[in-house]
Computed example of a mutant assay.
Amino acid sequence: MEGITHVRTRPARVSLWRCVVVCLLFLMSGPAAAQNCAATMSNVSFGAKTVSNVYGSTTTATITEGCTAGFPTRGTLNICNRINYGSSSTSVTNRYLRSSGTSGVIGYQLYADPAFSTVFTYSPGLITAIHYSQASGGSTNVTVYAKIQSLPMGVPPGTYSDTYSVSSGSLARFGALAESDVCTNTAYIGVALTFNVSVTLLASCTVQTANLTFPTSGIIKNAIDATGSMYVSCTSTTPYNVGLSAGNGAGATVAARKMTGPGGATLTYSLYRESTRGAVWGTTVGSDTVYGFGNGSQQSYLIYGRVPVQITPTPGLYSDTVIVTVTY
């Protein structure tokens, strides 16, 4: 009879031990533990850029995450970070920034490494293992690397953004038991990652010029004409005005510029906005400048020069420097 009693007692103890294990698993993956873990991600801001420096620009953001003390884990916490795609994008491989009221898009990508080689995706996620203490908890920071990948021609200035809201499905998932399936097992705690990606594209213009050279002449008994070229590139939809200064010659005005030669001698000339050489090209916006409207590509202009009939000065080389100003 004592042997029978001994056999009956051992299963009772095993059953009690199993009950304790089951209860622990339930506590670690149940809803009550969700209050102990948190994750936030800072916004991804590329700042203000011009057309000339926005392509290839980079920045970073930080995911701050962890669990407070009291979580019954074994000393290691597995955190899976999964970033889906935002409201302006079409997939994790095609992430875009868009601006309200325009059709322009700017391509960008989020990466898990500073070499910009591993795209930060939703599946698979990125698992980070951190030390966890039941007495003090555990936390970590994860860096997200971002890069502008494309800038189609003609994108107008403005603020471009992509929003990652709760509906985007991006999240950090915490596995208290350091299980490898923390990214896929929905029994683990999941915290939504919400953030915004943005860049401000500034209105900008650049200008290139070529020298205007008058032909060699002797006695100036007839007007001498020549043309020069100028190229202006402005962001799409950007209005601008191009002005030409009076030059460096002593006593010069935009109506009568002065080239300087041997011994300080001067030669009068003028620059015009059109081929008939009736409209002087000056610096007063709305009066004697040339107006343009940017289209995101290079726009060319001709500068019409004329040396009028005048008393021929001392023979030699005459030159002047004119400053081109683009106002936008």
Results as ranks from 00 to 15, higher is better:
Asn43His: 10
Gly243Pro: 02
Phe214Met: 02
Ala252Met: 03
Lys147Cys: 10
Glu65Phe: 04
Pro31Gln: 11
Leu202Tyr: 01
Ala252Glu: 02
Val92Ala: 12
Thr321His: 07
Gly47Tyr: 05
Gly175Tyr: 01
Val22Lys: 11
Thr276Pro: 01
Tyr188Cys: 00
Val199Trp: 03
Gly264Tyr: 03
Asn43Val: 02
Ile224Gln: 01
Tyr188Gln: 00
Thr143Lys: 09
Ser236Arg: 02
Thr200Asp: 04
Thr128Ala: 05
Val51Ile: 14
Tyr272Gly: 04
Pro313Cys: 05
Leu97Asn: 02
Ser29Met: 14
Ala61Met: 09
Ser103Leu: 05
Val144Pro: 09
Phe116Trp: 10
Gly175Glu: 00
Thr60Ser: 14
Thr60Lys: 06
Thr206Arg: 01
Cys234Trp: 00
Thr60Ile: 13
Asn141Arg: 13
Thr118Gly: 07
Val280Ile: 15
Thr143Asp: 13
Tyr108Met: 09
Ile148Ser: 01
Ala38Thr: 10
Asn185Thr: 07
Tyr122Glu: 05
Tyr231Ser: 15
Leu24Phe: 07
Cys183Val: 01
Leu317Gln: 12
Gly125Asp: 00
Lys258Gln: 15
Pro157Trp: 08
Val54His: 00
Pro72Val: 10
Ser123Asn: 15
Leu244Glu: 02
Gly243Arg: 00
Cys23Arg: 12
Thr253Pro: 07
Ile220Asn: 03
Gly282Ile: 02
Ala279Tyr: 06
Thr64Tyr: 05
Gly286Asn: 11
Arg306Glu: 10
Ala203Val: 06
Thr325Ser: 08
Ser297Ile: 04
Ile311Pro: 08
Arg8His: 12
Gly296Thr: 08
Thr283Glu: 05
Thr9Trp: 10
Arg82Trp: 02
Val21Trp: 08
Ala279Lys: 08
Ala32Asp: 14
Cys19Trp: 10
Ser45Thr: 14
Leu244Ser: 01
Gly278Met: 04
Gly218Ser: 13
Gln208Val: 08
Ala34Thr: 14
Val7Tyr: 12
Thr194His: 04
Gly247Trp: 03
Ala115Cys: 04
Gly169Phe: 02
Thr266Gln: 10
Gln134Leu: 08
Val307Gly: 05
Tyr122Cys: 03
Pro315Met: 08
Asn36Tyr: 14
Gly66Pro: 06
Val7Ala: 12
Ile130Phe: 09
Gly218His: 09
Phe46Lys: 06
Gly286Met: 13
Ser319Asn: 11
Val119Ile: 15
Ser100Asp: 13
Ser233Asp: 15
Trp17Asn: 11
Lys147Asp: 12
Cys234Phe: 01
Gly292Asp: 03
Val322Lys: 01
Thr213Leu: 12
Thr50Trp: 04
Ala252Val: 00
Tyr55Lys: 13
Ala61Glu: 07
Asp225Val: 12
Ser180Thr: 06
Pro308Gln: 04
Gln149Lys: 12
Ser236Glu: 10
Ile323Arg: 10
Glu179Arg: 10
Gly243Cys: 05
Cys67His: 03
Val119Gln: 10
Tyr160Lys: 03
Thr321Ala: 13
Ala178Thr: 07
Phe116Gln: 11
Thr227Trp: 04
Ile220Met: 04
Leu151Ile: 14
Ser136Lys: 08
Thr312Ser: 15
Thr283Val: 15
Thr62Ser: 13
Val324Arg: 08
Ala38Trp: 13
Gly316Ile: 00
Ile323Trp: 08
Ala223Phe: 07
Leu193Asn: 06
Ala172Cys: 03
Phe174Lys: 00
